[in-house]
Design a protein around this nucleic acid. Structure first.
Lengths: 357, 357
DNA sequence: AATTTTCGTGGAAGCGCTTCCAAAAATTCC
DNA sequence: GGAATTTTTGGAAGCGCTTCCACGAAAATT
């Protein structure tokens, strides 16, 4: 049996209250007593039982991250930043992957009750309306990341503007027949990116063509997959002379599929069709994909910081913070004329990050 | 205040023992009573307090995964499999990223004490000798993944054989000047992969050349990075006529860096230098990299299953299970003669998985 | 020197559960 | 119909801690 606070108290000839105070850095313990307690605690390898602590103090020192089941780089990078902060504050990170959207509500109802966790990060999932409504007070602080609800702190990416910037980039390159290769329109990012795309075209007074607007209908990962990109690009390529000269693809992963479809068909990028993605996952750098960078690490950091603030002070007004993706120009959207070609006919892969504001 | 077991008991006009029994699926509760309790519990949104439960029952329903701080695809895929199993068994997954190797021991000492978690997965980190020694009984079940120690269940990849298979693949393609682009030799996988490489050459009676053996000295991620691959490949390319015709790269991520270095220099792959990586991360498929696939998902699954077994029965003998990586042949090791070239001069990216036993 | 204030400390109560034992209720048996 | 079983049930004790109140000793004040 591991030693309890009583064992330490007895050995150190003090009361349990004193031992407790030592381990909670309570100021009113004399230096000698403190050292004596620490000495024995150390010798006996004593560690306060976190559950007993949680039960007695109503603080758990752990925060819960609820993420969609599919783990992509997007979440990893956010969680990595989260972990870093939590670790230095001595908090535990509990992970809940949600497999089915219907489970979200039950999960919330279960974990949102005081005493389970000190706070909760809710990533990329739709906050059920019904739940948000009945979520009044006396509840655990919740911060949303990559999803929005007026009643909670929300940290999201400006998908509309990002998509618009991406599209404008293609326009600025001289393209006029521009397509969009979108994910499943069920998902909010897909809707917003489509919206941004359309607004950019409208602003540039480029007429929209229905055949240049394609989206996935797949349910898996809301269509943000390599396969969906591949399939939709094949459809684009089948358009023959009506096919676009540039395409805004709503995620890097889809773009990689699209690129593969192009390679197989012998359509060159960017010569025949230029491409721009969204996300800037690691892969994008490797394949030289122009894309919109999402500041995942920053989002994670700010979200936890906000969560901590809210844990200190319940009554903060919800804030809604938005992150503007940055344009990262790489090979797939290079201007053909501006290319450097070396003796072997290959080109260096370069990355140009363009800061937008 | 959330309702407690007492509130439910009062409403349902039963004793707290009965409520407890209902929530623990104890058989000796009559159907009507059970339904009545459940009815009120539901109405009042009652959820047993996990910490109180843990304290009273000495089961926590959570397992801890200790991972190196740097989060790579390797861990993600393993953890994803772990999560899937835990979720369906109603267990929580607690994540501890270890930032500094020196922290490992303290972390173990702290969490390995009964009552904190029910079990622990220890990924890719070196189990401190000193700790393993004093870790006798009355401790939490621990299972190691991607690392080995005789006193614990260990699930590891056969790096030596994997590296040997990779090297033999290159040999079978007719290559004789074969290099190895390795990570930091401080790390076990790097050492083992070097060993497998050497043994394959020896078996084929190919003399080893010192200049074809290169490794990273970087500390970050033990040298398993894009940058290290890039840098070392530059060194290979600087060898001029003495440069290899094929290289075994000890990870996909390094291989992607190596490929970039080749592209920049105008050295073609596989025409001038063939490449084989290790891991089969998603990226490998996208860039058409031949590689050794590590069965990460399978490892994760089996490791948790073993952990569960051990949680049921303390006294199991440690087992040591080993996974053989599979050769996945893609573009970077194609035989030049066997290439299909289509009219535009591009080739389809194909994947051939070769099962080895 | 007597009084007040401060500091350090001990330990009871209570956090919300599980588990056990004893007792009540229902069922079976003779 | 009553005793013997079996099935349900109630609730005290205890899990390991925090927190608060009370108390004695030391320091400061008068």
């Amino acid at each position: 049996m591991p030693p309890t606070i009583y064992d330490i108290a007895k050995k150190a000839k003090v009361g349990i209250g004193t031992v407790s105070r030592v381990f909670n850095n309570h100021p009113s313990v004399s230096k000698e007593t403190r050292n004596r307690v620490l000495h024995f605690a150390n010798r006996m390898n004593y560690h306060p039982h976190p559950y007993a602590r949680g039960l007695a103090s109503k603080r758990t020192n752990s925060i819960l991250a609820v993420i969609p089941y599919f783990t992509t780089f997007f979440f990893i990078e956010i969680l990595q930043a989260v972990q870093a902060i939590l670790a230095e504050s001595n908090y535990d990170l509990i992970l809940h992957g949600v497999t089915h959207p219907e489970h979200v509500e039950g999960m919330l109802r279960k974990n949102t009750v005081r005493g389970r966790v000190d706070g909760m990060l809710f990533l990329s999932l739709k906050m059920p309306k019904k739940f948000a409504h009945e979520y009044v007070n006396s509840h655990v602080p919740v911060v949303l990341v990559d999803t929005y609800h007026p009643d909670f702190d929300s940290f999201t990416v400006e998908n509309v503007k990002g998509a618009s910037i991406a599209t404008k980039h293609l326009i600025s390159l001289g393209h006029r027949r521009i397509g969009i290769l979108n994910a499943n329109l069920e998902s909010t990012p897909a809707q917003e990116r489509l919206q941004g795309f359309k607004s950019a075209l409208k602003e540039a007074q480029i007429p929209m063509e229905q055949c240049l607007i394609k989206h996935s209908t797949s349910v898996r990962l809301d269509g943000f997959t390599h396969e969906d990109g591949y399939g939709l690009m094949k459809q684009f390529l089948a358009l023959g002379t009506k096919k676009p000269t540039a395409i805004f693809v709503t995620s890097d992963i889809q773009a990689s599929g699209a690129l593969q479809a192009m390679e197989e068909t012998g359509i060159r990028c960017p010569e025949d069709i230029a491409l721009i993605g969204f996300d800037d996952i690691e892969l994008a750098r490797h394949i030289g994909l122009t894309t919109m960078r999402q500041p995942m690490s920053e989002m994670g950091t700010l979200a936890v910081q906000r969560l901590f603030e809210r844990m200190k002070n319940e009554k903060l007004e919800p804030i809604f913070r938005t992150f503007l993706p940055t344009l990262v120009v790489r090979r797939t959207s290079e201007l053909i004329s501006s290319r450097e070609v070396n003796q072997q006919g290959t080109r260096p892969i370069r990355t140009v990050v363009q800061t937008t504001n």
